[in-house]
Amino acid sequence: MPPLGSLSQDLDRRDFDWYADKLVEILVFAGGFSAIILILGIFFFITREGLGFVFSSLDIVEFFTSPRWRPTSELNATYGAFALMAGTASITGMAMLIAVPFSIGAAVYIAEFAGPRSRETLKVLVELLAAIPSVVWGFIGLTLMNSLIIEVFDVPVGLNILNAGLILGLMAAPIMTTIAEDALKAVPDHYREAAEAMGATKWQVTRRVVIPAAKKGLAAAILLGVGRGFGETMAVLMASGHAINIPGSIFDSVRALTATIAAELGETAVGSEHYRALFTLGIFLFTITFVINLTADIIVRGTRKR
């Protein structure tokens, strides 16, 4: 517990306020540490459930290269996760193709060009977009977009990479916009003033001065969006078609890692091979999102230190 320093003589009397103060201090301390304990606990739990399987019965080569995910087969259960990884990667890639231009563009407009009133309105609207539950997005994908994609592109099924990527892009865009806008706002005003003093137009200032200065923050925003894409479950489960398939075009149905866990874990006997294989997917997913978020965090810290 840190010493309370110069305040201590005021706090000599152990009255109600003193105890209230202590209590709050302990609560805040516990709150701060609970995040660490929880993350370690989750890590420990996932590893314990899945790691035994990794070392005993999992064929690592099959896991990473075979598309055959057939955990409940009567003939020969196989645990190839390659198609699931390809599914997650393709949906996230599609989502980023949509979300990056939109969210960076929106952030630049809100931070650099918008007047005070439209800025406030836009910020509220962007935050509203982030408040839509993912199951609602999934429902839109399953019903509205499915029929629309079949009609517009004349493809056999509308539950595919395009559908899931579009939905996921729209879901990731608000958080990316908010973080990118923060990064642009963090660029000191005297950079802009100096550039304007040299006769640069508003666009030149933004493109040549502000964006390069904020590029690390923008990269972090994109990475966090990628992390969101990897982790999103419900909307992807509903909009992707949930088909084990190595995609050849954006109109192919795929299946994501997260969606596989969500769809299968609830009906699997605890401790069975299938159950532990799903936790192995969990370990893989956890590792990837952890690395992505850590990279984003390191980049953001890098910008703050300067």
Binding site: S73, I150, G241
Partner: peptide
């Protein structure tokens, strides 16, 4: 075994819903 690549829905009703919308 099933052929891979089927759309694996998560409920009896979802199957009928998808078939209804997909020629």
């Amino acid at each position: 075994d099933y052929k891979l690549g089927s759309r694996d829905m998560h409920g009896s009703k979802d199957v009928v819903d998808l078939v209804e919308r997909t020629p």
